[in-house]
Protein backbone atom coordinates (compact mmCIF):
# COMPACT_ATOMS: atom_id res chain seq x y z
CA UNK A 1 0.00 0.00 0.00
CA UNK A 2 2.58 2.69 0.90
CA UNK A 3 4.54 1.78 -2.23
CA UNK A 4 1.46 2.20 -4.33
CA UNK A 5 0.83 5.57 -2.77
CA UNK A 6 4.38 6.67 -3.59
CA UNK A 7 3.71 5.89 -7.21
CA UNK A 8 0.58 7.98 -7.28
CA UNK A 9 1.04 11.14 -9.32
CA UNK A 10 -1.23 13.27 -7.16
CA UNK A 11 0.45 12.11 -3.97
CA UNK A 12 3.89 12.82 -5.40
CA UNK A 13 2.86 16.26 -6.53
CA UNK A 14 1.22 17.26 -3.29
CA UNK A 15 4.27 16.07 -1.41
CA UNK A 16 6.63 18.05 -3.62
CA UNK A 17 4.45 21.14 -3.53
CA UNK A 18 4.14 21.17 0.25
CA UNK A 19 7.84 20.56 0.60
CA UNK A 20 8.64 23.53 -1.63
CA UNK A 21 6.14 25.78 0.13
CA UNK A 22 7.60 24.94 3.53
CA UNK A 23 11.18 25.25 2.33
CA UNK A 24 10.28 28.63 0.86
CA UNK A 25 9.78 30.05 4.36
CA UNK A 26 13.36 29.35 5.34
CA UNK A 27 15.32 30.21 2.24
CA UNK A 28 16.52 33.73 1.45
CA UNK A 29 14.34 36.00 -0.65
CA UNK A 30 16.63 35.96 -3.67
CA UNK A 31 16.32 32.20 -3.87
CA UNK A 32 12.54 32.41 -3.64
CA UNK A 33 12.68 34.78 -6.56
CA UNK A 34 15.03 32.50 -8.52
CA UNK A 35 12.74 29.51 -7.97
CA UNK A 36 9.71 31.52 -9.07
CA UNK A 37 11.51 32.47 -12.25
CA UNK A 38 12.56 28.85 -12.71
CA UNK A 39 8.91 27.85 -12.46
CA UNK A 40 8.04 30.42 -15.10
CA UNK A 41 10.72 29.09 -17.43
CA UNK A 42 9.85 25.52 -16.51
CA UNK A 43 6.26 26.08 -17.60
CA UNK A 44 7.48 27.05 -21.06
CA UNK A 45 9.85 24.09 -21.05
CA UNK A 46 6.92 21.86 -20.12
CA UNK A 47 5.19 23.12 -23.25
CA UNK A 48 8.22 22.26 -25.37
CA UNK A 49 8.49 18.75 -23.99
CA UNK A 50 4.80 18.30 -24.76
CA UNK A 51 5.72 19.14 -28.35
CA UNK A 52 8.84 16.98 -28.15
CA UNK A 53 6.71 13.98 -27.24
CA UNK A 54 5.12 14.48 -30.64
CA UNK A 55 8.53 14.81 -32.28
CA UNK A 56 8.78 18.58 -32.62
CA UNK A 57 10.98 21.25 -31.08
CA UNK A 58 9.93 24.88 -31.21
CA UNK A 59 12.64 27.51 -31.46
CA UNK A 60 10.08 30.25 -31.05
CA UNK A 61 8.43 29.74 -27.68
CA UNK A 62 9.39 33.34 -26.99
CA UNK A 63 6.31 34.07 -29.09
CA UNK A 64 3.89 32.64 -26.55
CA UNK A 65 6.08 33.70 -23.63
CA UNK A 66 5.82 37.27 -24.86
CA UNK A 67 2.10 37.09 -25.56
CA UNK A 68 1.48 35.74 -22.07
CA UNK A 69 3.66 38.39 -20.48
CA UNK A 70 2.10 41.25 -22.42
CA UNK A 71 -1.39 39.92 -21.77
CA UNK A 72 -0.81 39.99 -18.04
CA UNK A 73 0.96 43.33 -18.25
CA UNK A 74 -1.65 45.07 -20.37
CA UNK A 75 -4.52 43.71 -18.31
CA UNK A 76 -2.72 45.16 -15.28
CA UNK A 77 -1.96 48.59 -16.69
CA UNK A 78 -4.92 49.09 -19.01
CA UNK A 79 -7.75 47.21 -17.31
CA UNK A 80 -6.55 47.53 -13.75
CA UNK A 81 -6.67 43.79 -13.24
CA UNK A 82 -3.97 42.95 -10.72
CA UNK A 83 -4.99 39.61 -9.22
CA UNK A 84 -1.98 37.39 -9.93
CA UNK A 85 -3.91 34.12 -10.08
CA UNK A 86 -6.48 35.57 -12.44
CA UNK A 87 -3.75 37.07 -14.62
CA UNK A 88 -1.93 33.75 -14.85
CA UNK A 89 -5.13 31.93 -15.69
CA UNK A 90 -6.28 34.45 -18.32
CA UNK A 91 -2.83 34.48 -19.92
CA UNK A 92 -2.92 30.70 -20.06
CA UNK A 93 -6.31 30.69 -21.78
CA UNK A 94 -5.64 33.59 -24.12
CA UNK A 95 -2.22 32.38 -25.27
CA UNK A 96 -3.60 28.88 -25.66
CA UNK A 97 -6.31 30.36 -27.85
CA UNK A 98 -3.72 32.18 -29.98
CA UNK A 99 -1.82 28.89 -30.17
CA UNK A 100 -4.94 27.13 -31.37
CA UNK A 101 -5.33 29.70 -34.15
CA UNK A 102 -1.79 29.43 -35.51
CA UNK A 103 -1.33 25.73 -34.78
CA UNK A 104 -3.00 24.52 -38.01
CA UNK A 105 -0.49 26.64 -39.91
CA UNK A 106 2.50 25.19 -38.08
CA UNK A 107 1.28 21.64 -37.71
CA UNK A 108 2.02 20.84 -41.34
CA UNK A 109 5.74 21.29 -40.76
CA UNK A 110 8.30 19.00 -39.24
CA UNK A 111 11.86 19.08 -38.00
CA UNK A 112 13.88 22.10 -38.84
CA UNK A 113 11.08 23.75 -40.77
CA UNK A 114 8.79 23.70 -37.77
CA UNK A 115 11.59 25.09 -35.64
CA UNK A 116 12.37 27.86 -38.12
CA UNK A 117 8.76 28.84 -38.75
CA UNK A 118 8.06 29.08 -35.04
CA UNK A 119 11.21 31.18 -34.76
CA UNK A 120 9.95 33.45 -37.55
CA UNK A 121 6.67 33.97 -35.70
CA UNK A 122 8.45 34.99 -32.53
CA UNK A 123 10.72 37.38 -34.38
CA UNK A 124 7.83 39.03 -36.20
CA UNK A 125 6.23 39.64 -32.83
CA UNK A 126 9.53 41.00 -31.52
CA UNK A 127 9.75 43.38 -34.47
CA UNK A 128 6.22 44.60 -33.85
CA UNK A 129 6.61 44.99 -30.09
CA UNK A 130 9.73 47.15 -30.23
CA UNK A 131 7.95 49.47 -32.65
CA UNK A 132 4.81 50.10 -30.60
CA UNK A 133 5.67 53.10 -28.46
CA UNK A 134 2.31 53.05 -26.72
CA UNK A 135 3.46 49.97 -24.80
CA UNK A 136 6.98 51.16 -24.19
CA UNK A 137 8.66 50.02 -27.40
CA UNK A 138 11.96 48.30 -26.72
CA UNK A 139 11.94 49.44 -23.08
CA UNK A 140 8.73 47.66 -22.24
CA UNK A 141 6.76 48.79 -19.24
CA UNK A 142 6.31 48.26 -15.52
CA UNK A 143 3.54 46.05 -14.18
CA UNK A 144 1.40 47.22 -11.27
CA UNK A 145 1.85 45.43 -7.94
CA UNK A 146 -0.02 42.14 -7.84
CA UNK A 147 -2.92 41.45 -5.54
CA UNK A 148 -4.37 38.18 -4.26
CA UNK A 149 -8.13 37.99 -3.80
CA UNK A 150 -8.22 41.77 -3.59
CA UNK A 151 -5.50 42.02 -0.96
CA UNK A 152 -2.14 43.54 -1.77
CA UNK A 153 0.53 41.88 0.36
CA UNK A 154 3.18 43.90 2.13
CA UNK A 155 6.38 44.09 0.06
CA UNK A 156 8.45 41.74 2.21
CA UNK A 157 5.97 38.90 1.68
CA UNK A 158 5.05 39.62 -1.93
CA UNK A 159 7.74 37.37 -3.40
CA UNK A 160 6.87 34.48 -1.15
CA UNK A 161 3.16 34.71 -1.88
CA UNK A 162 3.76 34.74 -5.61
CA UNK A 163 6.07 31.77 -5.08
CA UNK A 164 3.32 29.83 -3.32
CA UNK A 165 0.72 30.76 -5.92
CA UNK A 166 3.00 29.71 -8.76
CA UNK A 167 3.77 26.39 -7.09
CA UNK A 168 0.10 25.66 -6.57
CA UNK A 169 -0.95 26.56 -10.10
CA UNK A 170 2.03 24.79 -11.66
CA UNK A 171 1.33 21.73 -9.53
CA UNK A 172 -2.22 21.51 -10.85
CA UNK A 173 -1.03 21.99 -14.43
CA UNK A 174 1.66 19.34 -14.02
CA UNK A 175 -0.78 16.80 -12.63
CA UNK A 176 -3.18 17.38 -15.52
CA UNK A 177 -0.33 17.06 -17.99
CA UNK A 178 0.82 13.79 -16.47
CA UNK A 179 -2.69 12.43 -16.92
CA UNK A 180 -2.68 13.60 -20.52
CA UNK A 181 0.72 11.99 -21.19
CA UNK A 182 -0.52 8.65 -19.88
CA UNK A 183 -3.83 8.77 -21.69
CA UNK A 184 -4.47 7.18 -25.07
CA UNK A 185 -4.07 10.46 -27.00
CA UNK A 186 -0.88 11.10 -25.05
CA UNK A 187 0.51 7.74 -26.15
CA UNK A 188 -0.50 8.38 -29.73
CA UNK A 189 1.58 11.57 -29.56
CA UNK A 190 4.61 9.42 -28.72
CA UNK A 191 3.77 7.21 -31.68
CA UNK A 192 3.64 10.25 -33.96
CA UNK A 193 7.16 11.05 -32.86
CA UNK A 194 8.34 7.62 -33.96
CA UNK A 195 6.39 7.00 -37.14
CA UNK A 196 3.82 9.43 -38.35
CA UNK A 197 2.96 7.42 -41.43
CA UNK A 198 2.02 4.41 -39.38
CA UNK A 199 -0.15 6.49 -37.09
CA UNK A 200 -2.08 7.73 -40.12
CA UNK A 201 -2.40 4.15 -41.38
CA UNK A 202 -3.73 3.11 -38.01
CA UNK A 203 -6.46 5.69 -38.45
CA UNK A 204 -5.32 8.54 -36.20
CA UNK A 205 -4.42 12.05 -37.24
CA UNK A 206 -0.87 13.20 -36.61
CA UNK A 207 -2.02 16.70 -37.52
CA UNK A 208 -4.62 16.78 -34.75
CA UNK A 209 -2.10 15.51 -32.23
CA UNK A 210 0.30 18.28 -33.22
CA UNK A 211 -2.38 20.96 -33.06
CA UNK A 212 -3.36 19.83 -29.58
CA UNK A 213 0.23 19.67 -28.37
CA UNK A 214 1.00 23.06 -29.83
CA UNK A 215 -2.05 24.58 -28.17
CA UNK A 216 -1.07 23.13 -24.81
CA UNK A 217 2.49 24.36 -25.30
CA UNK A 218 1.18 27.82 -26.15
CA UNK A 219 -1.02 27.97 -23.07
CA UNK A 220 1.83 26.87 -20.82
CA UNK A 221 4.22 29.30 -22.47
CA UNK A 222 1.72 32.12 -21.96
CA UNK A 223 1.31 31.25 -18.32
CA UNK A 224 5.09 31.14 -17.93
CA UNK A 225 5.40 34.53 -19.60
CA UNK A 226 2.77 36.03 -17.34
CA UNK A 227 4.46 34.60 -14.26
CA UNK A 228 7.84 35.86 -15.38
CA UNK A 229 6.40 39.33 -16.02
CA UNK A 230 4.65 39.44 -12.65
CA UNK A 231 7.77 38.19 -10.84
CA UNK A 232 10.02 40.72 -12.52
CA UNK A 233 7.40 43.48 -12.29
CA UNK A 234 8.43 44.43 -15.78
CA UNK A 235 7.98 43.25 -19.33
CA UNK A 236 9.83 44.06 -22.54
CA UNK A 237 10.21 42.68 -26.08
CA UNK A 238 13.24 40.65 -24.97
CA UNK A 239 10.67 38.07 -23.84
CA UNK A 240 10.10 37.19 -27.48
CA UNK A 241 13.70 37.40 -28.68
CA UNK A 242 15.22 34.30 -30.17
CA UNK A 243 17.90 34.01 -27.51
CA UNK A 244 15.14 33.76 -24.90
CA UNK A 245 13.55 31.00 -26.98
CA UNK A 246 16.95 29.34 -27.05
CA UNK A 247 16.98 29.19 -23.25
CA UNK A 248 13.65 27.38 -23.28
CA UNK A 249 15.00 24.83 -25.71
CA UNK A 250 18.04 24.45 -23.47
CA UNK A 251 15.77 23.60 -20.53
CA UNK A 252 13.79 21.04 -22.48
CA UNK A 253 16.85 19.33 -23.93
CA UNK A 254 18.54 19.19 -20.55
CA UNK A 255 15.37 17.78 -19.00
CA UNK A 256 14.33 15.44 -21.78
CA UNK A 257 10.71 14.59 -22.43
CA UNK A 258 10.43 11.67 -20.05
CA UNK A 259 9.72 13.45 -16.80
CA UNK A 260 7.77 16.51 -15.68
CA UNK A 261 9.75 17.38 -12.51
CA UNK A 262 12.99 17.16 -14.51
CA UNK A 263 11.86 20.19 -16.52
CA UNK A 264 11.61 22.34 -13.41
CA UNK A 265 14.91 21.04 -12.17
CA UNK A 266 16.53 21.97 -15.47
CA UNK A 267 14.91 25.41 -15.31
CA UNK A 268 16.14 25.89 -11.76
CA UNK A 269 19.61 24.90 -12.89
CA UNK A 270 19.46 27.49 -15.66
CA UNK A 271 18.29 30.21 -13.28
CA UNK A 272 20.92 29.35 -10.69
CA UNK A 273 23.68 29.42 -13.29
CA UNK A 274 22.30 32.71 -14.52
CA UNK A 275 22.22 34.36 -11.12
CA UNK A 276 25.57 32.99 -9.97
CA UNK A 277 27.43 33.84 -13.11
CA UNK A 278 25.62 37.17 -13.21
CA UNK A 279 27.05 37.90 -9.81
CA UNK A 280 30.54 36.45 -10.13
CA UNK A 281 31.32 36.10 -13.82
CA UNK A 282 29.06 38.54 -15.63
CA UNK A 283 30.84 38.09 -18.96
CA UNK A 284 30.80 34.35 -19.17
CA UNK A 285 27.30 33.23 -18.41
CA UNK A 286 26.55 32.35 -22.01
CA UNK A 287 29.81 30.45 -22.22
CA UNK A 288 28.90 28.38 -19.19
CA UNK A 289 25.42 27.79 -20.59
CA UNK A 290 26.82 26.72 -23.94
CA UNK A 291 29.32 24.33 -22.42
CA UNK A 292 26.62 22.77 -20.23
CA UNK A 293 24.34 22.41 -23.22
CA UNK A 294 26.98 20.60 -25.29
CA UNK A 295 27.96 18.36 -22.39
CA UNK A 296 24.38 17.45 -21.62
CA UNK A 297 23.64 16.61 -25.25
CA UNK A 298 26.73 14.41 -25.39
CA UNK A 299 26.44 12.66 -22.06
CA UNK A 300 22.73 12.61 -21.26
CA UNK A 301 21.02 12.63 -24.65
CA UNK A 302 17.65 11.63 -23.19
CA UNK A 303 17.89 14.34 -20.55
CA UNK A 304 17.96 14.15 -16.76
CA UNK A 305 14.37 12.96 -16.94
CA UNK A 306 15.72 9.57 -18.02
CA UNK A 307 17.32 9.14 -14.59
CA UNK A 308 14.03 9.94 -12.92
CA UNK A 309 12.25 7.45 -15.09
CA UNK A 310 14.81 4.70 -14.45
CA UNK A 311 14.53 5.35 -10.74
CA UNK A 312 10.76 5.08 -10.69
CA UNK A 313 10.69 2.10 -13.03
CA UNK A 314 13.00 0.23 -10.67
CA UNK A 315 10.74 1.21 -7.86
CA UNK A 316 7.70 -0.14 -9.65
CA UNK A 317 9.31 -3.45 -10.47
CA UNK A 318 10.09 -4.17 -6.83
Amino acid sequence: MPLKLLNNVIFQSIFLMSLLIVVGIFIPNWLVFVITKAIAYGLVGLGIITLMRGGLVSFGQGFVFGIGGYTAGLLGTQAGLTDAMLLLFISFLFTGFIGLIIAPLLARYRDIFFAMLSLAFSMVLYGILIKIDAIGGSDGFVLPESTYFGISPSPEYADYILYVVSILMTGVVSILLRYYYNSTPGLIALAVRENELRVEYLGSSAFNVTVLNFTIAAGLGGMGGALNGIALGHIDPEFTYWTTSGEFVFISILAGYLSVPAVFLAALFLELVRSFSGRYFPDTWQLILGVFLILSIIFIPSGIGSFFKQFFDKFKNK
Binding site: F59, G246, I253, L289, V291
Partner: peptide, 19 residues
Protein backbone atom coordinates in the same frame (compact mmCIF):
# COMPACT_ATOMS: atom_id res chain seq x y z
CA UNK B 1 18.52 14.60 -35.69
CA UNK B 2 18.95 17.91 -37.53
CA UNK B 3 17.19 19.84 -34.79
CA UNK B 4 19.57 18.43 -32.18
CA UNK B 5 22.54 19.56 -34.23
CA UNK B 6 21.05 23.03 -34.50
CA UNK B 7 21.04 23.05 -30.71
CA UNK B 8 24.67 22.04 -30.57
CA UNK B 9 25.59 24.90 -32.87
CA UNK B 10 23.45 27.19 -30.72
CA UNK B 11 25.56 26.13 -27.75
CA UNK B 12 28.72 26.88 -29.71
CA UNK B 13 27.25 30.23 -30.65
CA UNK B 14 26.74 31.04 -26.97
CA UNK B 15 30.32 30.08 -26.20
CA UNK B 16 31.67 32.21 -29.08
CA UNK B 17 29.69 35.20 -27.83
CA UNK B 18 31.50 35.16 -24.54
CA UNK B 19 34.84 34.30 -26.11
Amino acid sequence: DEVLIVLVTYAIYLVLEDV
